[in-house]
Design a binder for these strands. Structure first.
Lengths: 197, 197
DNA sequence: ACCTGAACACCGTTCAAGT
DNA sequence: ACCTGAACACCGTTCAAGT
């Protein structure tokens, strides 16, 4: 029954944590700064100390999303062998798993709402995600498992299919053998295309 | 200087048109039923006659989006020859053009917010879009230009890359040779994969 | 059938003031 | 530095009442 102290302790972290939970449980439309403040037992104006605007909170959320995604992808990559095919498959599944488990967060991460200020940190986080994709393809090229060509161009052809699969899955488009089976088709097609033979 | 009549005439259509303009000019965050009503010179409660809820308006907007997209894709397909490569390229460019010109609308169309009721009509519109994709691939298979295999599975490997390219472009991820050049790489890769040779 | 007027329960954000 | 209390200008939605 200790009375709440004046200071929350770490209101910023508490806001982020609670917001992310709301995001996952009830979607981005249900996210309200006032409700967050109520749940954490602070005044409606308290959050503004840590996030000048609601968009700033969303940007911070997206940033943590990119950080966790990069971490998950790296972990998946390091769990398998060094071939391009193995790494691509592992990272593809990790990407889909993360996205389905954090659908609303993924929407935030790839929404065009990046405020020009906060996008500095957010942009860096997104950049690390891109670098990771480039790295996969570069290694594949060095091993002779991926065709030659400008890195960014080739990498785009590798990651667009994954991003598209994730986008379709998250937005509820009915996919064949919902879940992971269709993904394996997509992964195979990235390597060999849709030509006959 | 004729005084506004009691009836608006076609408030429903006017709401949709104005909403779509706001969507394109200022994004989905700036969409407000009250503002729409103000702009159209009706009371704040008037829109609720035609759209029981704001989400219903958004669903209707998404529905028109799918209809226009399907139309644009069909037109692009019919402007070129019958080969799979030609049609794929034409539809890919039409898809990207539509998406960049209607970024916020595309977000709406592929957001997971489909209310279970309105999704009947919306679901049908989305279904026509899927059917169109399947049709492209089926024709390609019949012509021997696309590999054999379950239609839905093969079609997914064709459209995931396009959807992913569009998603990345719309969300502002820096793409090589921003615009259409990277898309041609993606289209080529759909056909032949990223293998060497 | 279609709309108004007024109300209700919310928002995000700001700002003086408190600790 | 961090938060409160109160206020401002908005929201979406509902509902009796008007035409």
């Amino acid at each position: 029954m200790t009375k709440r102290p004046y200071h929350h302790g770490d209101l910023r972290a508490a806001l982020l944590e609670r917001a992310e939970r709301t995001l996952r449980e009830r979607g981005s439309g249900a996210l309200s700064l006032r409700e967050l403040a109520r749940d954490l037992g602070v005044s409606p104006a308290a959050p503004s100390r840590h996030f000048k605007t609601k968009q700033a909170l969303l940007d911070a959320l997206a940033l943590t999303g990119f950080e966790r995604l990069v971490e998950a992808l790296a972990a998946a990559r390091d769990r398998v062998g060094p071939t391009f095919a193995e790494r691509l498959a592992a990272m593809a599944h990790a990407y889909v798993d993360f996205s389905l488990a954090n659908a609303a967060l993924l929407d935030l991460m790839f929404s065009a709402k990046h405020s020009p200020e906060a996008s500095e940190a957010l942009g860096e986080a997104a950049h690390r995600w891109i670098e990771q994709s480039l790295e996969l393809v570069r290694t594949g090229q060095e091993r002779g498992e991926v065709r030659e060509g400008p890195l960014e161009h080739v990498a785009l052809t590798v990651f667009a299919p994954l991003h598209g699969y994730v986008g379709l899955a998250v937005s509820g488009v009915p996919l064949p053998e919902t879940g992971e089976r269709g993904l394996d088709d997509v992964v195979a097609s990235i390597v060999r295309g849709c030509r006959p033979d």
